[in-house]
């Protein structure tokens, strides 16, 4: 038995058994989405509350006034938020399957901003309530302490600035990732030392051990995500077997498993791909799988040249070694899906293609509608295969191509996807309809808003945003 076989994340019996049962297409696990989200929130907020309760329990000193204690409370909460940032980016597959990695990373980003604000408020409130606290930042009072605390404030600012203005600063994605992790670990370490050295609420040794243990767990997650998991990937090599051009300045890269059975995934999910390097490496990028989930030993990703690292994808040579981390994401057929509506734009077609190919290969007769927006016929990735699928009728597919610049003689939909266009094609809504939206941000916002206005609950709308990285 390979070590991976004992990994509960990697096993997916649901996917394997699905082909045997054409009656149920979807995966019932996704139905627990709101419940699981609630549990995750309770854990997050509960732990933050618990740290404050922990500070207050058995504390011998009287309070130092509301403002001072409020400032202290914000410091504690800010620290816990920072520690949780490590868990949010640990790329837990089960969490990504339920909530979506894009939502988790958006949440991570927002909570990062808020924790920065909390730490600044911690400093600002304490100094304005009790000016003598300014001594903590005064080099004349205590050089190592002032140096450490200024380092934290500068490191927090650096993380914020490099995240918001990474492009403007000319910082590569790889160096941003490395500096982000290193600065975060440094901040957490100094933060912990600060809490222990101030020691006002953490004087008891048992409390100190809880704080040290909690911080170690957060840093441990970082080590696990960036080192242990990548090292485990090494035993599962893939090889690029083909790189073929597609319309729309896109390339399909075919990967073959080398001496292992491949990757069990659900159609519509994505992977982090490492090309031509051995993990651990910061140079890995998320791509949707475009091939059928019926084949686990061969994976295809279709990548559009977008001017960044993707612009050299066509130069990748067959035989190049590759590693695949994943699968991730919840852009999959879920629950009691009886009818699927896809709205895709441009390269957003890739996960949809995987779902349609899987339905075809498994012979699942799920009625599907695909509204597919493309700039022009020249950019129409997969259009030929989609037309064939529609003609064959397995799965029953209604294809609505939308050309921004239509070819001569085109009588179908043109321009961009609009609410009126959606109204012309969308089927009557019922609890069995699932909506899948993947494409450029404005299109996704428009479609999601329109679906919400039609009264479709968020739990039946799946979307995948590629700007997660």
């Amino acid at each position: 038995v390979k070590p991976e076989d004992s990994d509960p994340d990697r096993r997916s019996p649901r996917t394997r058994s699905r082909s045997a049962d054409a009656g149920t297409v979807g995966n019932s696990a996704a139905r627990s989405f709101p419940g699981t989200l609630l549990v995750s929130k309770v854990i997050y907020l509960g732990l933050a509350g618990a740290t404050l309760a922990l500070a207050a329990v058995g504390h011998p000193h009287p309070g130092r006034g509301f403002l001072v204690e409020f400032g202290v409370g914000l410091g504690f909460v800010g620290f816990v938020m920072l520690a949780f940032q490590f868990a949010l980016t640990a790329k837990f597959r089960w969490l990504s399957r339920l909530v979506g990695l894009d939502v988790l990373l958006h949440f991570h980003r927002q909570m990062g901003f808020f924790s920065y604000g909390f730490i600044l408020l911690h400093v600002g409130i304490l100094i304005s309530a009790q000016p003598e606290y300014a001594a903590y930042l005064d080099f004349r009072v205590d050089v190592p302490r002032a140096l450490a605390l200024w380092t934290v404030l500068l490191a927090l600012t650096a993380i914020l600035v490099t995240t918001i203005w990474r492009g403007d600063l000319g910082l590569s994605y790889e160096w941003w990732r490395i500096s982000h992790a290193a600065l975060a670990a440094l901040i957490l370490f100094i933060g912990l030392v600060h809490i222990l050295r101030v020691g006002w609420y953490i004087a008891d040794p048992w409390k100190q051990w809880i704080w040290v243990g909690g911080t170690a767990a957060a840093v441990g997650l970082l080590v696990y995500t960036r080192l242990v998991k990548p090292l485990r990937l090494r035993s599962r090599r893939w090889r690029v077997s083909k790189v073929r051009p597609e319309p729309g300045r896109s390339w399909t890269v075919t990967l073959e498993a080398v001496d292992h059975r491949g990757l069990t995934f659900e159609a519509g999910q994505f992977i982090w791909l490492i090309l031509g390097r051995t993990p651990p490496t910061a140079i890995q990028h998320p791509f949707s799988i475009s091939s059928s989930a019926a084949r686990e030993d061969v994976l295809e990703v279709t990548i559009k040249e977008l001017g960044d690292h993707t612009s050299r994808i066509g130069e990748v040579k067959p035989g190049t070694v590759a590693f695949v981390e994943g699968p991730y994401g919840n852009f999959v057929l879920d629950g009691d899906v009886k009818e699927a509506v896809f709205v895709a734009g441009g390269v957003g077609i890739t996960p949809v293609m995987s779902i349609l190919r899987t339905l075809r290969d498994r012979g699942l007769p799920l009625p599907t509608l695909l509204i597919y927006g493309m700039p022009s016929l020249e950019d129409a990735t997969f259009l030929g295969e989609l037309e064939e699928l529609e003609e064959e009728g397995s799965p029953p597919l209604t294809l609505v191509p939308v050309f921004e610049a239509p070819p001569q003689g085109w009588t179908g939909e043109t321009g961009r996807v609009t609410p009126e266009m959606l109204e012309r094609h969308l089927p009557a809504d019922h609890p069995g309809v699932r909506y899948y939206v993947c494409g450029p941000e404005p299109m996704m916002d428009l479609v999601e808003t329109h679906l919400r206005e039609r009264g479709v609950p968020l739990t039946r709308i799946h979307s995948e945003r590629f700007n997660i990285a």
């Binding site: 933050a48 309070g63 403002l67 409370g73 949440f107």
Partner: peptide
């Protein structure tokens, strides 16, 4: 929509945590 959902979730969480910090300050002072 889902990024707005994530934003709402983070604003809600942050507000909740501010309230917690305020409650903490209140209770250690009584």
């Amino acid at each position: 929509m889902k990024h707005i959902f994530a934003l709402r979730m983070s604003i809600g969480s942050a507000l909740f945590l501010v309230v917690l910090a305020a409650l903490f300050a209140y209770f250690v002072n009584i």
